[in-house]
Amino acid sequence: MSRYFGRKLLIYGLTFFVAVTINWMIPRFMPGDPVQSMLARANIAQPEAVEAMRAHYTDLFGFDLPLWKQYANFWAALFRGDLGISIWLFPTPVTDVIARAVPYTLGLLLPAVLLSWIAGNRFGAFAARRKWLDNTALPIGYVLTATPYMWLAILLAWGLGVVAGVLPVAGAYSFAMRPEWSWDFAGSLLQHWLLPFASLFLVAFGGWAIGMRNMIIYELEADYVHYLQSLGASRRLVRRYAFRNAVLPQITGLALQLGVLVAGALVTEIVFSYPGLGHLILQAIQNQDFFLLQGTFLFIVIGVLIANFVIDVAYVVVDPRTRIGMGGAA
């Protein structure tokens, strides 16, 4: 068991290292010069002042050092929990910017992932045993799962926001409000949360429902089900066993889909101007904000890796075969 997790941790560590390195590389090799754009924003005419500022900023962000040194400094700072200073929101530290955005992304992503997984599995299992539902729900599921997140998001924003006018299409809360602990504000949050959540939920829901439907049909034809039926076991027991065994590949599927879901959440945030990490990434790219971009990616990488690890552990808990395989073979 410990060998299994040791190996897993090693793989996660390696993934983390590679991902962080790529994170560091991407903004640096992007076209454009962030210091230049900051100077342009400052709008100063005097050449000496411009030169002084350029020297200050270059020194501040460490751009005058050789690349390998920048890279080493980056890791050193990372272990101190220092992700640098945002260029876009200068001089706010990147960690603060991310900390402000994370609750929005998590508030959107976690319910969308978990609820769509649970509801999709339930619905898929339910549809598998009713022919008419199977015939109507399945094509809808295929359409949903094939829909790009942002396209459905735009469709929902246009339909429910612009045409019907029942839900707001931008922001995390009303522009007329400031964050505070009040029912009004909570209501506004919920209202703004609904559409981005729905577009994430629906796409993922279709995928899970189809997967579960196929798995249930497969499981209901398995030998152990035939045996139980031959001994007259209740339908309830048979369904329970089949559902439980059909969920196992869905758990693996969740691990595989997590990255896609996160990416989906990011573009959905952009569609709805939702102030989460996706919104930050867009701003960081537009403002040549290396540090913010790095920090945001880093946060996402860590999040996905942790979630995958949790799913790994969960799988070991629910499937005795993995447990036994580890004890026997290792």
């Binding site: 030998d223 152990y224 035939h226 139980l228 031959s230 001994l231 066993y241 065994n245 005795p320």
Partner: peptide, 16 residues
Amino acid sequence: SVVPQYSMSALNPTRK
């Protein structure tokens, strides 16, 4: 009652 042809796989793999 029956002892099926597929006895080796007749038991639910995820239940004791």
